[in-house]
């Protein structure tokens, strides 16, 4: 079509697309894809930090899976994950539904406030909550002391500590997920509700038969994203409890970190992280299945 005789389908040089994607892959190959392969490879070697690696097959997996501490760490993580999800999901749905019923201006102000915690680092959130939980200087125990109760050992009682951690995690993400659900709610046309109302559906029935099914994709995202984050629990417990008391808040990532950088056993750390990654992928698939089977009901 032009003087240079380029065909219509060949508007650009063959190498052009590769030049565009090259810079990204220059970073992605070592730190993304390459690191995944390296993590797998590392789980088959004995590699004391600072020495050279030696192939040991499945030894490190055996070590990890037989280690009662790893089992404990996985159970703790799962316990806190389930508690976290059971509290978070209904709460953020409730907040999203309430946001929808506010005047637009009020809803905007409320959104700005409840979004603030997600902009903070996990460490900043943990430190803020230490100012509330602390047995010596904490606000909550200060109040309880005034009325002659306590102190409540928020972080030093092995039954209570996991829930104290769950509470601060919910505080950080509640507004964020509620706003995501709220955006999903606003995409549902008002006519659906009006039709349901004409059919005599009450508030609960409208929620059950209009809101919930139409909101499912967004709920799915919230469920998957929040459970992945919950599997990776580390920073808050690292700062506030160091896995204690009595290892009640020892998490899987904390076990991996300890194996790699405290026991200097990179192979063991890698094997544990492969097991955890597998658990995360399985739980994501299960979450998808759960919501899908609900369709048929």
């Amino acid at each position: 079509m032009s003087a240079s005789g380029r065909r219509r389908s060949q508007k650009y040089h063959q190498s052009t697309p590769y030049l565009f994607i090259a810079p990204f892959f220059l970073l992605f190959i070592p730190f993304g894809a390459g690191s995944v392969l390296l993590a797998l490879g590392m789980s088959f070697v004995d590699w004391p930090l600072g020495q050279s690696p030696e192939l040991v097959g499945l030894d490190k997996f055996a070590t990890v899976l037989e280690d009662p501490l790893f089992g404990r760490a996985m159970r703790n993580t799962l316990y806190m994950l389930v508690g976290f999800l059971l509290a978070l999901l209904p709460l953020c749905l409730l907040v999203a539904v309430l946001l929808k019923q506010l005047r637009r201006r009020t809803a905007n102000v409320v959104q700005v406030v409840i979004f603030a915690p997600i902009t903070m680092s996990l460490i900043a959130v943990a430190l803020v909550f230490d100012l509330l939980y602390n047995e010596r200087v904490g606000f909550v125990n200060g109040i309880l002391d005034m009325i002659g109760v306590g102190p409540v050992p928020f972080l030093s009682d092995s039954d209570l500590a996991p829930w104290s951690i769950i509470a601060l995690r919910i505080w950080r993400v509640l507004g964020y997920y509620a706003i995501i659900l709220f955006a999903g709610l606003q995409a549902i046309p008002d006519e659906f509700y009006e039709a349901a109302e004409l059919d005599g559906a009450g508030a609960w029935q409208r929620f059950r038969h209009v809101t919930f099914p139409l909101l499912k994709p967004v709920t799915m995202f919230v469920l998957v994203a929040s459970s992945i984050a919950a599997w990776e629990l580390f920073a808050e417990v690292d700062v506030l409890t160091d896995g204690g008391p009595a290892r009640s808040t020892l998490t899987a990532v904390m076990y991996i970190f300890g194996a790699s950088f405290e026991q200097f056993d990179l192979g063991k750390g890698a094997a544990a992280s492969v097991v955890l990654a597998f658990a995360i992928i399985v739980s994501t698939v299960v979450a998808h299945r759960l919501l899908r089977s609900d369709d048929r009901a």
């Binding site: 992605f28 070592p30 730190f31 993304g32 894809a33 390459g34 690191s35 995944v36 390296l38 993590a39 590392m42 992945i228 599997w231 990776e232 580390f234 990532v253 991996i256 790699s260 990179l266 750390g269 890698a270 992280s273 492969v274 955890l276 990654a277 995360i280 992928i281 994501t284």
Partner: peptide, 19 residues
């Protein structure tokens, strides 16, 4: 690239450290 989204970030920290 899309598949890598399924890999938790913490699992990459160890290999990234060795690199």
């Amino acid at each position: 690239v899309l598949a890598s989204l399924a890999i938790p970030e913490y699992a990459l920290v160890l290999p990234q450290f060795t690199i």
